[in-house]
Design a protein around this nucleic acid. Structure first.
Length: 281
DNA sequence: ATGCCTATTGCGAATAGA
């Protein structure tokens, strides 16, 4: 089974491009972030015509996540336990939840979460505290799932809005000590996910390369990007990974997202069916 | 060229992104 994650930066503005890629890249299940619409605005027909069922969690024009699958989709959840909310100018525990997480079981029992981690905005913004709290709640939830079922094939995928190492930051405007995405608390929060039993399964196979380039200042032609989109897998899933790719070519051409898809092949039943499927087209 | 920000709301300027 081939699973992928992609911050699409509005599903309505580039639905043809997204579905074309899914078909061309032979993707079985795609986790999307920043769909920027509600379920009733989502372009369901285009996905269905290509053979995908979609579970959507979108509240308004901001954020929004979805999972498209042609290998079944069930047990949909639109938040994880303990997930904090946020509203500008509000403090305290009653802030509304945003559409930043959707979980579903796809294929042969893979528990897939499409995650859009808060940006943080700046180190002194309340959104930054929210980002750290959100990540800690995610860690606690994932630790709970794995404690209950150590052999669970769990995938936490999406836009984590953190460049975990300096090698993941090629953008000269993102400065350690000044900018979000590279601060020590953010990197510690990411590292805590790994300690909780999740592994970045792309980096060992694709050791270099970014997943995001700002639209401004020729960031893509200059290759001044960030690696902030990840596939984090539990041990049971990580050992079944047979290939991975960052689809850099999706940053080219007409009206691209500022992020590119990241895809992983998993072979849970060990039959190596995917061994001869080309990863990049 | 892989090209100089982009999407949404709503009709223009604000918000958000990272």
């Amino acid at each position: 089974m081939r699973i992928a994650t992609w911050n699409v930066n509005s599903v309505r503005s580039r639905v043809a491009r997204i579905v074309d890629w899914m078909v061309r890249a032979d993707v079985d299940a795609l986790a999307m972030q920043e769909i920027k619409c509600r379920d009733d605005q989502f372009p369901h027909t285009e996905f269905e015509r290509a053979g995908y069922e979609v579970a959507v969690h979108g509240l308004n024009q901001w954020n929004g996540v979805a999972i498209a699958s042609r290998v079944g989709i069930g047990e949909v959840a639109t938040a994880f336990d303990g997930m904090p909310g946020f509203a500008k100018g509000m403090e305290g525990p009653d802030q509304p939840l945003e559409a930043r997480a959707i979980g579903a079981t796809v294929g042969d029992g893979v528990r897939l979460w499409s995650l859009y981690v808060p940006n943080g905005r700046s180190l002194d913004d309340p959104h930054y505290r929210y980002k750290l709290d959100w990540l800690e709640a995610l860690r606690a939830a994932a630790a709970g799932w794995l404690a209950a079922e150590p052999a669970l094939p769990l995938a936490l995928v999406g836009d984590f809005n953190i460049a975990p190492t300096d090698a993941d930051n090629g953008d000269p405007t993102i400065v350690p000590g000044v900018s979000t995405h590279v601060s020590e608390p953010e990197r510690a929060a990411f590292s805590a996910l790994l300690t909780a039993g999740l592994a970045d399964v792309v980096r060992p196979i694709v050791p270099t390369g970014y997943t995001y380039w700002d639209y401004q200042q020729l960031r893509f032609p200059r290759n001044e990007g960030l690696r902030i989109d990840f596939v984090l897998a539990s041990a049971a899933l990580a050992e079944a990974v047979t290939d991975a790719a960052i689809h850099r070519e999706e940053r080219k051409g007409e009206a691209p997202s500022d992020h590119v898809p990241v895809a992983v092949d998993v072979d849970l039943d060990g039959d190596e069916d995917d061994a001869d499927r080309p990863m990049v087209f």
